[in-house]
Simulated assay, not measured.
Amino acid sequence: MPSRPMPAEIETHLAEALPRLVELRQDLHRNPEIGFKEVRTAGIVAERLRELGLEVSEGIGGTGVVGTLRSGTGNRVIGFRADMDALAMQEATGLPHASEIANMMHGCGHDGHTTMLLGAAEMLARNPVFSGTIHFIFQPAEEGLGGAPAMMRDGLFERFPVDAVYGLHNKPNLPEGSFNVAIGAMLAAADTFTVAFGGQGGHGGSGAHLSIDPTLAAAQFVTNLQAIVGRNVSPFDQGVISVGHISGGNYDAPNVIPSRVVVRGTVRSFSPATRDLLERRLNQVARAAADAFGTTLDVTYERLFPSLHNPPEATGRIVSALRDRFGAERVDDKATPGTGAEDFAYMLEQSTGCFFFLGAGNGPALHSDRYDFNDNILADGVRYWVTIAQEELAA
């Protein structure tokens, strides 16, 4: 059972504010904006933070916003981060608040994350139950475009230094209102590769023997890729290599051997050593396939997000605080690491802190065209942030 109830004044204020938060969340959902184009969203965030009396800085890393709230005499500083961007996909929910923008939707719940953090800013500005400084970090472009490193290149932690930084993401198909974290490795490093095999096209029927066929090299490469993890990565470690795109030739010319075939895919890992190994072996396998069939080879390997690791001390402290507030049965600190990626990992490379999942209950998965953020968890998201503020900045 919980042993540390939420301050009564915050619960009262939260009950009054909740209908407004739902309205805001659904407004953001109707008006999604993709990475680095979150102009309207960032404007709403900045306006609401100013109305609460926070110091507001805009345009950090493109469209990022930071609001700073100080209370009491404490000199410890923490950061709370939420992401703001939507996905480039067409929504199929049919909801009254469905996206009004073609081929854009909040398919990952960043509308909810932004709303929960704004709600927490309101609760803590009106009820300062902490002593110290909080930087509320609203980040653009989490969905694969590098919004976190963009903010950091723009001086995020030099301009707004923190002793620790915290994140939160909703997760469908975890019990509604539960909290889920892995201590240590929680989410994978994510990389992208593009491999192009070049040959000499020809007639697939009468002149195949005169061609240099890049389709053979590509086929061998794709097949042999799957041996890398099984024969090079320890069974006590993890790695994933998947091909997501193959292109070559013309659909309307199936009798023509193409002169170029492109293979693209994703690579996931947890440890830096395994990440290095997978990149090295992928290049070797590509080279071997090209040499076997006499093609040219062009490999581009792009490291996107690092692996997200939750530091034991900081994470354990927040686990204890959440259990005191919500009850031990609602807080799981032994989550199975997942091979999804999250660019909050860049922030945890520069600072201690932690990243939790908040259960959203049963429903369509993240990035589904039928997904919608569960408004029933908005209040618990706000309580999460208030709990961390009280734990890390005890008044």
Rank of each mutant, 00 (worst) to 15 (best):
R4I: 02
P7N: 11
I10D: 06
E11V: 09
L14N: 05
L14H: 00
E16R: 15
A17F: 05
L21W: 05
L24G: 05
P32F: 06
I34F: 13
K37G: 03
I44Q: 00
A46Q: 03
E47K: 14
R50E: 14
G59L: 08
I60M: 04
T63Q: 11
V66C: 10
G72K: 13
T73L: 13
N75L: 13
G79E: 11
F80E: 03
M89V: 12
M89L: 15
T93D: 03
G94H: 08
L95N: 03
C108A: 14
C108R: 01
G109H: 02
T114G: 04
L118G: 08
A121F: 00
A121T: 09
A121D: 00
L124F: 02
R126L: 12
R126T: 12
I137E: 05
E143D: 12
G146D: 09
P149C: 10
E158M: 09
E158A: 15
A164V: 01
G167F: 11
L168G: 06
K171W: 11
G177C: 08
F179E: 01
F179R: 00
N180V: 03
A182F: 05
L187S: 12
L187W: 01
A190I: 02
A190V: 06
A196K: 14
Q200I: 14
G204N: 12
L216D: 11
Q220C: 13
V222H: 08
T223V: 15
L225T: 05
A227S: 15
I228G: 05
G230I: 06
N232I: 06
D237Y: 07
G239D: 02
S242Q: 13
G248S: 12
S259I: 09
V261S: 11
G265F: 03
R268L: 04
F270C: 10
D276W: 03
L277W: 08
L278F: 07
L278W: 08
R281V: 10
Q284I: 12
Q284T: 14
V285E: 09
V285T: 13
A286N: 10
R287V: 09
R287L: 12
A288P: 01
A289H: 11
A292C: 12
A292D: 13
L297F: 07
V299L: 12
V299G: 06
V299T: 14
P306V: 12
R317E: 13
R317G: 06
I318R: 02
G327E: 03
A328H: 12
V331H: 03
V331N: 05
D332S: 08
D333Y: 08
A335D: 06
P337C: 06
A341P: 02
M347H: 11
Q350L: 14
Q350S: 15
Q350V: 10
S351F: 01
T352Q: 13
T352M: 09
T352H: 11
C354S: 14
F357G: 00
D369I: 10
D375Q: 07
L378G: 01
L378F: 04
D380A: 01
R383A: 10
L393S: 08
